[in-house]
Every structure is written in structure tokens, then in C-alpha cells.
Design a protein around this nucleic acid. Structure first.
Lengths: 100, 100
DNA sequence: AGGATAGGCAAGTACTCACTTGCCTATCAA
DNA sequence: TTGATAGGCAAGTGAGTACTTGCCTATCCT
């Protein structure tokens, strides 16, 4: 669950893809490939990007919609909100306190 | 830079360590080992935990202070705040927009 | 001093994962 | 229908990494 989210964010290429989708949501695979190559000098194959997109979608950071032969990728930032909260306000429960 | 942070968070054991330190900051290596073994049934060696702590410290999520033969580990949640912000409010700068 | 406790260093192993290569399917334009 | 475009599936490779094992140093207690 959360494991997919953190592992998706662990790769720098995937974070760059999120950057691009944050700037312009709803891009196709080929558009993303072009941007990674142009703006970020990432010499990466189309298949690699496709696999990254699959990981991001499995993490819930991405939603896709198909139209004809195009598949558009939309950013979903909802899963990101719970990340920091996990350790920031952690006075949720006070279990045993054993002083050694 | 941010790479260390995300890679540190990618491992479930390290996230559990952060959970334990959020609940009780300033634990020693052996205390953390005991907690992982007791509360989380993690059959993990002391060296493995030590290496995890080194990764967390390199990511800035941990600060350590030595007192005699004890080394205490304190949680630092500061690096976590910038994570979500990267993609949530990303109207920071509007670069070129090329419609394909 | 001697033993016990707390931690560190370094090499080896096994497994994950990012990426490539090759081929296949589906939609659209001529 | 033919060719071009957009995307998918699957196996193979190489590098990174989580974990172990073995040994070593430093501090405390009696």
C-alpha cells in the first residue's frame, strides 16, 4: 500500500515525470518521452518511461484515460498528503514506555 | 540531495524505525533493535539496523549525539515537509509551454 | 585488570530493479 | 489496404542494495 508509494518516489526519473505532469497534466507517453529527452537530457527508451508510468499508476500517483490510440496520464497528488503526516503529528497513541 | 531523502524512505524497515523514533526520540541502537524485534517481529541483525540508521542520518532524518558508550538517535522531521510541497503547489515558475 | 556492554568496519551474498531489445496489437490517415 | 503512429508484452542484463558474518575498538562496572 504505502510501500508502492514510497518506492515509486524513490527513483529520480519518476520524480521528474511527476514534475512534468505537475506542470502539464494529461500528457501521452510520447510527449513525456520527448520532454524527458529535451528538457532533462535523459537518454531513456520509450519502454523505460512506460514502465515508470506503470509504477506511478500502481502507487496511485497517476490516473490514465484512453481515447482512441492515445492514452493520457493525469497527475493525482492525493497520496502525497499522507506522507509527512505520518511522522509529523505522531502523538496518536502512547504505548508502553520502558526506561532502560 | 533530495535523492538521499527519498531513497531513505523507500525501505519499509527504515520507515518503521522512523515510526519508533517518532514515538520515542533519542533511542540507542540496541533499543531500536529490541523494538523492531519485539513490536514488529523483525528478525534483523544489529548491523542491518546500524546501516539503516546511517542511511537515515545521511538523509537528514536523524541526528545523533554520543554520550560515553551510548549513541542516541533523534528524529528530525524537517526534511519531510518539503516532499509534498514539490508537487502540490507547483505553480512556482511557469516555463515554456509548447503544445504538440 | 578483566569482563561485559555499546558500537564500528569491511567483505561477501542474494535479491531487487531500472533499462534494453525484439516483437506484437490497435488506431488513424492516405 | 498499406503505412505510419501510439502503445503493450516479455525475456534478458547489469548495477544497486539489504542483509549477514566475522572481527575490532571504546566505555563502563566490579
Amino acid at each position: 500500500m504505502a510501500d508502492d508509494l514510497f518506492k515509486a518516489l524513490a527513483d529520480p526519473t519518476r520524480r521528474t515525470i511527476l514534475d512534468e505532469l505537475a506542470e502539464r497534466s494529461g500528457q501521452t507517453l510520447f510527449e513525456i518521452c520527448a520532454r524527458l529527452s529535451m528538457k532533462h537530457q535523459l537518454g531513456i527508451s520509450r519502454q523505460a518511461v512506460s514502465q515508470h508510468l506503470a509504477v506511478l499508476e500502481a502507487a496511485g500517483l497517476l490516473e490514465t484515460r484512453r481515447e482512441g490510440r492515445y492514452k493520457f496520464h493525469d497527475l493525482n497528488t492525493a497520496p502525497l498528503r499522507q506522507i509527512a503526516e505520518r511522522w509529523l503529528a505522531t502523538d496518536t497513541s502512547g504505548p508502553e514506555e520502558n526506561t532502560p
